[in-house]
Amino acid sequence: MKYALKRILTLLVTMLLVSFLTYAAFEVISGDPAEAILGTEATPERLAALRHEMGLDRPFLTRYIGWLTGFFSGNLGISYRYHQPVWELIGPKLEITLCMCLVSFIIIAVISVPLAIWSYRFVGGPFDWIRTAFNQLCMAVPPFFTGILISWLFGIVLRLFVPGDFPDLHTDFGAALGHLFFAAICLCIPRTAMTVRMMRSTVIGEMQKAYVRTAISRGNDRRAVLNRHVLKNSLTSAVTFLGQTMAELIGGSVVVEQVFGIPGLGRLLVASISTRDYPVVQTVVVILAFWVVLAGTVADLVNQRIDPRLRLGGDA
């Protein structure tokens, strides 16, 4: 249990660090928020008044702490563009994006491990090159391209969903999930191919190890060697990779949301970046960063369950 606590402590410290760095970076990037709100023609008096009202005349550290407590209590200021509290703006979109990433993640996790084991059978065989080429092809097709094809085929031709018309997540969860499912497929094709490729080469590497020879010498057949020994030993690197996949999915979701007209965090981010709506951008970045760090921590904790060697002290 000690290692888990330690890891969670590291997570909290990292989150603190990330949020501080982001806050500091945006402090430098965004310039004067009062000016951004009032425009360049505002009188100095009005600017000063607004600055005082927004608390901008307080020291940096005080403002950071104020912002951080605001982050957890839901008070993150007002969007420049939408003139709406940032949390209210982000909340529903965050739900949608997280849903999509989770659906995609589950698909990847569920199919890539068996696929990797299955593809191991072709190693050294005459058809291995077909598998390799197909794998590379899956990694090469950009999600927004498959997105265009899929939304045309399933949306326009087969009418399984209406591209651009996203159902409400709360009132019509089933339909929303269906819509997200097609987007998730586009997201997970290249990433599944990468996971399979990585996992397959891990399995190949593990098969060379001495313990495999021992297992064979005891009378295990090939399947038992794979299932009872090699699979578990290959799993830790797959878990780490899947943890990073979580981060990549967030990145990919930005584009896929655009293609499918899903009103998620990614679209909000893109819109806010082009309008320089910094309070929104800043919050989204911190949320995504937390999400990434959290995924990494969960991967580490899972790995420690799998591999007892990782439980020995040290910073994991």
Binding site: K209, A210, Y211, R213, T214, A215, I216, S217, R218, G219, N220, D221, R228, H229, K232, N233, I306, D307, P308, R309
Partner: peptide, 26 residues
């Protein structure tokens, strides 16, 4: 398939480096 009945049952093998010859996760 016939050999698998012999491996382990009638012939036991001990390898050079026990640390790597054992499955680290079992």
């Amino acid at each position: 398939s016939a050999l698998r009945q012999i491996h382990g049952r009638r012939i036991g093998v001990v390898f050079q480096e026990p640390m790597s010859a054992m499955d680290p996760l079992m």
